[in-house]
Amino acid sequence: MKTLLLAGLATTLLSFASLAHAGALKVGVTPGAYADSVAAAAEEAKAQGLDVEVVEFSDWTTPNIALAAGDIDLNYFQHKPFLANAVKERGYEFADVGTGTLANIGLYSLKHKSFDEIPQNGTVAIANDPVNQGRGLLLLQKAGLIKLKDGVGFQGTLDDIVENPKNLSFTEVEGPQLVRVTGDVDLALGYPHFIVAAKAFDPAGGLIYSGIDDKQFAIRFVTRKDNADNPDIAKFIQIYQTSPKVRSAIGTAFANDPKLYTIAWEK
């Protein structure tokens, strides 16, 4: 009887281990385009025997903390420069394992119809993290509102502004929250997919946008280095990049406006 009980227990444990291994991924995302498209891929994956749990975060810090801690297996919210900065600052052992959508950024105003209307001493809301702030500053420079030090690129900060003829003042805000403050300032950096998700205002109403020349800012699938060869992760990314349902979810999340996003893995 004891032998039978032990054998039964061993069989049960093996069954649990098999269930835990077979098709169980947790993917961390931020709201909007990334959450919606990953959820669509998760539905497709389930039909192919791969169970995927979508874990949504409201900020740009926790998804990497959760990944490093092993609470999730994969995240999908950051581009290469953001990832490089996170690894540099926190020493993460992460691997970039796949290309996703390139979300263009824009400069938005709910008070003015052109950059010429931005007043002296106007107010600007911009991302507070080093990489996305630099990306926003380059767009402000492209719009002719500021000039940056030569050669700073996307790593520029507010300290790198050398000319500010309108004497603009800047408020630093975490990226996903910029949509909430757009109406309070003269001009704000904006992420169209967050604007669509919040149903805040017209995402196609930006005064200027980035574009495919920003390809390094395509969102990446990121995992831990020790999990980079996980076949389930490779399978999920392949589903994401080939599924018509995912493509439709991405389009919907960007108001089906091609100037707001690019399918970067095809470019």
Results as ranks from 00 to 15, higher is better:
Phe217Lys: 04
Phe221Leu: 03
Arg247Gly: 01
Phe82Gln: 11
Lys245Phe: 00
Glu89Pro: 00
Thr11Ala: 15
Thr252Phe: 01
Val54Gln: 04
Gly156Thr: 01
Gln177Val: 05
Met1Thr: 13
Gly91Val: 07
Val185Arg: 04
Leu14Arg: 03
Ile250Asp: 04
Gly175Cys: 03
Ala125Cys: 10
Tyr108Ser: 09
Leu4Tyr: 14
Lys267Arg: 10
Leu168Lys: 08
Thr182Ile: 11
Leu67Lys: 10
Tyr191Met: 14
Ala40Glu: 10
Thr262Arg: 10
Ala42Ser: 15
Glu163His: 01
Ser15Pro: 00
Lys166Pro: 06
Ala86Gln: 15
Glu172Tyr: 01
Lys26Arg: 15
Ser18Gly: 13
Ile233Glu: 02
Gly190Ile: 12
Gln48Val: 00
Ala40Phe: 07
Ala86Thr: 12
Asp186Pro: 08
Ile65Trp: 07
Leu67Tyr: 07
Ile72Phe: 01
Lys147Leu: 00
Ile105Trp: 06
Ala45His: 10
Ala95Pro: 12
Phe16Gly: 09
Ile105Ser: 08
Lys149Gly: 06
Gly134Lys: 00
Ala33Met: 10
Met1Ala: 13
Pro176Phe: 02
Gly100Tyr: 02
Ser15Lys: 00
Val29Asp: 02
Pro176Ile: 06
Gln133Cys: 08
Tyr108Lys: 06
Asn164Glu: 02
Pro203Met: 12
Ala39Pro: 00
Leu107Cys: 09
Arg247His: 07
Ala204Ser: 15
Asp36Met: 02
Gly32Leu: 05
Thr123Gln: 03
Ile126Gln: 03
Glu43Trp: 02
Pro81Gln: 09
Tyr191Val: 14
Gln241Glu: 14
Val97Ala: 02
Gly190Val: 13
Asp202Tyr: 08
Glu89Trp: 01
Ala218Ser: 14
Gly190Leu: 11
Glu117Met: 08
